[in-house]
Design a protein around this nucleic acid. Structure first.
Lengths: 186, 186
DNA sequence: GCCGTTGAGCTAATCTTATTAGCTATAAGG
DNA sequence: CCTTATAGCTAATAAGATTAGCTCAACGGC
């Protein structure tokens, strides 16, 4: 019984990879265990349940996406920042559809939920973009929600490969960015 | 063994109601069977599997939403039509979160899939709105996709009750409509 | 009104997966 | 070297989907 020296982080990583490969909805603890070379019950030493693993994958996704967004937005503002943010989201979701899907149904467990913290950081980047558009006050919260809806909608459809977007996907995405840019100019 | 006289439509209806009540992700054949007063295996005389039931619920949702949208849009054009469409979607998703969620991961089974037909009719309404904005040609397909992303994003968040939107939800939704209206004016 | 056929609904059984209980031996600290 | 905490294991339970095969109610033809 050689100790594998597993950590919770490795379990979540394996789960995230499998979610991307097989689809979040098809993720099972058996798959994760096999990938890690252990038996399914052993995973319970690191995560509390399948639901817990799913929640951790969502948290990982939010953190990774936050980082990708921040990297992409450095030194940009206005429409340039908006486009960078949107493209970062698109890249992340395309590369990690399973992880993004984990965030879709995820609920915050409480005020200390790390998923909440990660989500808030992403929202902060939305706010930063809107700052460049001179949006503030009451409008700010409405605009943040609006931006979130739009990008989330794109991301959900992308993650579910619901797009039949033939070869003009890039053009449509550019159109989407222009659409948001116009919409944010009051 | 009194024959219940069940039909596939009734099974789907019961499934849709339960999805709205308990959450799409928690829907089980056992729940549906109990609601209908039969044993779980009996459902297989009407639907092929749980996945089939889920797909049929998605189809029902698309049809119902299509009808709601068409009713709401009658005699309207331009921003008025856009607002009517958006509000119809919002009403439907609020009333039927489980059914809408069924549409999220749904895939088209083929060119004859009734879900495809129902979805196409909804998309037609999107096109009708855009017609009022004078959008045509190459832009039309991009604008349809953009509108779909935005409304789908809102709907997914609404269905998942991911909004903490306190009491200013209506204002935010109005802002969303204004945002789309501005974005569609080229 | 009687008879045969169809199929709706049933019970029993199988399979997959999540999850718990309880054991064991490894690795780390003294 | 010895103690102890615990990672990982096997065995067992439970929920849920699904299949096999039975039975009898309803319907059409006579």
């Amino acid at each position: 019984m050689p100790r594998t020296g597993l950590t919770a982080a490795e379990v979540v990583r394996a789960g995230a990879e499998l979610a991307d490969e097989a689809g979040f909805g098809r993720l099972t603890l058996g798959m994760v265990a096999e990938r890690l070379g252990v038996r399914p019950p052993s995973l319970y030493k690191h995560v509390a349940s399948l639901a817990d693993l799913q929640h951790r994958i969502a948290t990982l996704a939010m953190r990774e996406m936050d980082e990708a967004i921040r990297d992409a937005m450095i030194g940009r503002s206005g429409r340039d920042a908006l486009a960078a943010l949107a493209r970062a989201v698109r890249s992340y979701v395309t590369a990690h559809p399973g992880r993004y899907t984990a965030t879709v149904g995820a609920q915050f467990a409480g005020p200390d939920d790390p998923l909440l913290a990660a989500s808030s950081r992403v929202i902060d980047s939305f706010g930063a973009v809107l700052h460049g558009y001179g949006i503030a006050g009451d409008d700010l919260v409405h605009a943040i929600r609006t931006l979130r809806c739009t990008l989330h909608g794109f991301a959900v459809l992308q993650a579910g490969s619901a797009f039949q977007w033939s070869d003009d996907a890039d053009q449509s995405f550019d159109w989407l960015i222009g659409f948001m840019d116009r919409g944010l100019r009051a």
